[in-house]
């Protein structure tokens, strides 16, 4: 059992920078690389994951006293799979276009390591409040990374940034002008790897500078 050294606020914010699931733990890279061809897709995937992570963290920490150790993993999986199915159905019903562009990656949230990882490593050993804050923080960190990744790829790849899109309504800004021809590869899978690589490098560089200052 980890000693409760971290403050509640600390549990919430650690996922954003210090233990960011994408940029530090390097977990959940599969959806992060696959769906982030636009800022909105990144946000959408982040939102879906937030729902699942928050829900499963809370539920797992509630039921932890009655779950025998030997069946905990199947129980967690059932809980997570139920939340994923719910989010999948909700997207299909109320965000059809987003669910089409995320495609298979919504059901695949089930196997996202962050979720089972947080359930096993955190929610099953901490209070409900702490687990909720941890889940929310981790999910927000995940969403933030996906949003930045998607936004960078979209801006370089097609010169636009999309915050929302549903049928006719869309919040989309044309940053680089109408005549920007676009760099196609950034929207294709290789662009995801390149951008993520540069993001990791930037994060490490900033962290190094911060460490120097504190010393």
């Amino acid at each position: 059992m980890p000693a409760n050294k971290t403050s509640h606020l600390g549990e919430l914010f650690k996922g954003l920078w210090k233990d960011n699931p994408i940029m530090v733990l390097l977990l959940g890279l599969c959806p992060a690389l696959a769906v982030t061809n636009s800022a909105y897709n990144g946000l959408g995937m982040g939102a879906a994951t937030t729902f699942v992570l928050l829900g499963s963290n809370i539920l797992v920490s509630i039921i932890k006293p009655i779950v025998p150790k030997s069946v905990r993993i199947p129980v967690y999986i059932v809980v997570i799979a139920a939340f994923v199915t719910v989010v999948d159905m909700l997207l299909k019903a109320y965000q059809y276009e987003l669910s089409r562009s995320l495609g298979l990656f919504v059901p695949l949230i089930v196997v996202n390591c962050i979720i089972l990882g947080r359930a096993e490593a955190f929610a099953s050993r901490n209070t409900v409040l702490r687990s909720a804050l941890d889940g929310l923080g981790m999910a927000l960190g995940f969403t933030l990374a996906l949003f930045v990744l998607g936004a960078l790829r979209e801006i370089i790849g097609s010169g636009t940034i999309t915050f929302f899109q549903m049928g006719e309504t869309e919040i989309k800004f044309n940053l680089l002008g109408e005549n920007y021809p676009g760099i196609l590869v950034m929207i294709l899978p290789p662009g995801a790897f390149l951008t993520l690589g540069f993001m990791l490098a930037a994060r490490n560089a900033i962290q190094k500078r911060l460490d120097k200052k504190t010393r």
């Binding site: 009655i66 025998p68 069946v71 129980v75 059932v78 719910v86 159905m89 299909k92 019903a93």
Partner: peptide, 30 residues
């Protein structure tokens, strides 16, 4: 173990069935 797993799987199933009823209409429409 048997009881816990059964109860949790059953509860999840029930919840999903309810969710399915709510979203089925809009999904078919979409």
């Amino acid at each position: 173990m048997l009881i816990v797993l059964t109860v949790i799987a059953g509860a999840a199933g029930l919840g999903l069935a309810g969710m399915h009823d709510v979203t089925e209409g809009p999904i078919i429409e979409n």
